[in-house]
């Protein structure tokens, strides 16, 4: 959903090249109808639509569906993104964005659909293996010790691969609703996680920072 025809056009052509079916809408009202009737697997949404706020659309869609939503925003203002993510959007892209980037995000969002779980859930990224049942983390063959909080933080991130989790969401899930303002907890614990799991903590490959917004676990491509 996007009001600018040119953007719609190239997004559509790029997605169609990848073999997706694309439906377009240029208003919030139209978008809600399309979303309800076509039941798409994924929504790409521009926050600045002519007849209303894209945030309202997220609210509307989230009322009945958990389909992934990727937000496009022309605004530099981080608050809009954070709000969109807090409302349930999965990812965001700031204009201008590259096609490759968009397609990668789309793939990631679609893949994250099957939730983690099951008795023998195991996640691998880079040279790290996480055994969720045994609560064992192995890096380069050596076991890594994580504190309770670090483990919970890692688990929360791993649970939604590719999805941007806002500071608020992470703090609520890991520390509880009373601590949503204590963002320095996150800074410190993410630092610990990176130092323990990433090869180069200053150039993380998997535990990425979305400045001003939150964090994202980026699984291995492919």
């Amino acid at each position: 959903m996007e009001d600018e025809r040119e953007i719609r056009r190239f997004v559509k052509s790029a997605l169609e090249t990848e073999g997706y079916r694309v439906f377009e809408a240029d208003t919030v009202a139209r978008g809600l109808i399309e979303a309800a009737t076509r039941k798409p697997e994924l929504v790409i949404l521009d926050l600045g639509l002519p007849d209303g706020d894209g945030l309202d659309l997220i609210r509307g869609v989230r009322a009945w569906s958990g389909m992934p939503i990727i937000v496009l925003s022309a605004r530099v203002d981080e608050r809009d993104k954070v709000e969109a993510l807090d409302l349930g959007a999965n990812d965001y892209l700031t204009k201008p964005f590259g096609i490759a980037e968009l397609l990668a995000r789309v793939r990631a969002a679609l893949r994250s659909q099957p939730q983690l779980g099951g008795p023998d859930a195991k996640v691998r990224f880079g040279n790290v293996g996480v055994d969720l049942t045994a609560r064992r983390i192995v890096k380069n063959g050596a076991e890594v010790h994580l504190t309770q909080r670090e483990y919970r933080l890692l688990l929360t991130l791993l649970n939604q691969p590719g999805k941007v989790l806002t500071h608020r969401q992470l703090l609520r899930d890991v520390w509880g609703p009373a601590h949503v303002e204590h963002s320095h907890y996150l800074r410190i614990y993410m630092g610990h996680l990176r130092h323990k799991l990433e090869d180069d903590p200053a150039r993380p490959r998997f535990l990425l920072t979305e400045t001003g917004v939150g964090y994202r676990f980026l699984p291995d491509e492919g």
Partner: peptide, 22 residues
């Protein structure tokens, strides 16, 4: 300004990229 300039530029960037991919 910020909105009006970003939107066409986004289209430009995106279209050029699509073109180069195709």
């Amino acid at each position: 300004l910020s909105h009006d300039l970003r939107t066409p530029l986004t289209a430009l960037v995106g279209l050029a990229e699509t073109l180069s991919l195709s």
